[in-house]
Design a binder for these strands. Structure first.
Lengths: 335, 335
DNA sequence: AACTTCTACGTAAACGTTTACGCAAAAGTC
DNA sequence: GACTTTTGCGTAAACGTTTACGTAGAAGTT
């Protein structure tokens, strides 16, 4: 029903080729016909059909974003950055909610493949062989966001979890703490789990604090409830702690809750430092000291990498983004 | 580079029409050729090109979602629901971050129009005339989510803000409170601002509590910082309050912060009730009593409405979703 | 004036599908 | 066995673009 290039051509008494040339501002027409065609376009309210364009150009100006969860603040921020950069590059994003489920993920990859998207951003989760094989057959740029693969050569953008954790732990010892516990995420998680645990341990060791296995508790995930339970367990098995490093802000906020129930005050009875710097970090009471991942910037960067790969045809270089200590009020100098 | 229907046809010694028929399981071929074609498809790893399909079918199986903010939990939950329902219906979503900006919104509408999406979900914001005129020219289904238009006939899905606010206020008086304040959003906002204010006032009146203008404070928006400032102002101009209704959970959490700084305890010194039931509501200390908007379900419903309009060609009926009181620990019986 | 070179277009094929139409052979009917 | 009907398939047009190629006339060159 909408007007097509043919309607424009007919009304302007030119061929569709000329209209197309004007639309894509190429050369090969006079100023006069350009004016005329533009007027007709305006009059009809014509707008080119991106589907048809996509068919011939083999570019849809759309990228696919795979995320493990949608109603998570972590993902929300990352998406914010991706969308912004994509929009600036004249592209749209299709978001796919995988629930970290292999089958759903494969279905989404299938779908994205059929839709001939220009690139993929795979966010925060393990890149299974199956995914890699499929996407590499698609021959389109892919970048990993807040995750990485040791096995497959896919560029990523990430902070250095090991270093960031190290920094968090070191911050606590610099504040005079020596009895420090950690609420970690899943210890099977090679990406966000293990490196944070290792960074934490190393920092303590390097400062002459022996780390006892009782000082770290392993949760299933990085969510609020994990933090509630994890902190309870941690304090049961080691009541003398004066500070806790939580591997995510949500875990930290979960800890806040159980500490409150145990009638322990943050930071007077116990200092807490988080990880991520989500918006809840500054909303909590007391405001949470945390090590920031620049999530929005990471999203932007990932999107830009996809577009640059698209332009250049070459693989982009992975990028480690800087983390940063955000000092608020949940950590107290140990007198 | 990927295989096309022609490759399949050639290898299977049939025409492309036959392959197409099999793909779309229509009739007009024998079991034997179906087997053969399917085998060839499997061998080649052929997958149909949705762009080409879209061109002829005039259906892209993609809907556009316009949201005012991306890194907001409100939007995140709503998106969760939309994505889920869209996926079940075999469609994808393109998300557009308008920042409630007229120009950006128009640009996105333009883009979505060119991409020939099948439908639009417009979330939480004012439907300007300009938007309506444009989208009605597109002749595709649109539904309003968490907003509505008195002026234009666009179906919506929403809770009844007036009633929900009324319920919140009534809940507070049922708990014995009589000195009740409100932190409202923008008083110019015809959708989420005014009705909540009116519902609040009406409930007090109906219970014989006279409402003083000093009892409600108007913020710019519904965000955390608005709540921080709003609650401060509210308590300055009316220190004797025993309960506060915040027009959003973020406003409530903002209030938590200033109360904490003023050394007032929730709910012992002051009861607070929120609005939305975002995930922070249960993470806060104390957990926030609030009136829930079923955000995920609302998202699902909106998406389903788009698809049903697409099938039937008729306008869907607007839907008022039920709100619900979520009792947690931030409101105390006034002795 | 007789060339070459540009400029400003138009024609038609291509992108990868779906589908209306046509037709030969198989199957059913009497 | 002479029909009608059905089944199984192929041909070609259409969807709305882009673009390679061709060409007539204008402009430049000698």
């Amino acid at each position: 029903m909408p007007y097509t290039i043919k309607d424009v051509a007919k009304k302007a008494n030119v061929s569709i080729a000329t209209v197309s040339r004007i639309l894509n501002n190429q050369t090969g027409y006079s100023e006069k016909t350009k004016k005329k065609v533009l007027t007709v376009i305006e009059e009809l309210g014509y707008h080119p059909n991106a589907v048809a364009r996509g068919l011939v150009n083999k570019r849809t100006h759309t990228i696919g974003v795979l995320v493990p969860a949608l109603s998570s603040m972590f993902v929300a921020e990352v998406l914010d950055g991706i969308e912004k950069a994509a929009n600036e590059a004249g592209s749209s994003i299709i978001v796919c909610h995988t629930e970290s489920n292999g089958e759903k993920t494969m279905n989404y990859l299938q779908l994205l493949n059929e839709k001939r998207i220009d690139g993929i951003i795979f966010t925060s989760g393990i890149l299974k062989d199956e995914y890699y094989e499929f996407t590499s057959k698609m021959k389109i740029p892919m970048v990993l966001l807040a995750t990485l693969s040791h096995k497959h050569p896919v560029p990523y953008v990430k902070v250095d979890d090991y270093k960031a954790s190290y920094a968090a732990a070191e911050y606590l010892v610099a504040k005079g703490h020596t009895k420090i516990g950690m609420i970690s995420g899943n210890k099977m998680d090679i990406i966000a789990g293990i490196p944070r645990i290792e960074g934490f341990k190393k920092a303590l060791e390097d400062h002459g604090i022996s780390v006892n296995e009782k000082n770290v508790v392993y949760c299933e995930g990085f969510a609020f409830l994990d933090g509630v339970e994890g902190s309870r367990k941690l304090l049961e098995q080691n009541p003398e702690l004066t500070a806790i490093f939580a591997a995510s802000d949500e875990l930290a906020i979960g800890a806040y809750s159980t500490l409150y129930q145990m009638d322990l005050r943050v930071p007077d009875d116990l200092s807490i430092i988080g990880y991520d710097n989500l918006s809840i970090a500054k909303m909590s009471i007391p405001p949470l000291t945390t090590v920031e991942q620049p999530l929005i910037k990471m999203g932007e960067e990932a999107a830009r990498m996809v577009f640059s790969m698209l332009e250049s045809g070459e693989a982009a270089k992975s990028r480690i983004m800087p983390h940063q200590m955000i000092e608020r009020l949940s950590v107290k100098e140990k007198g």
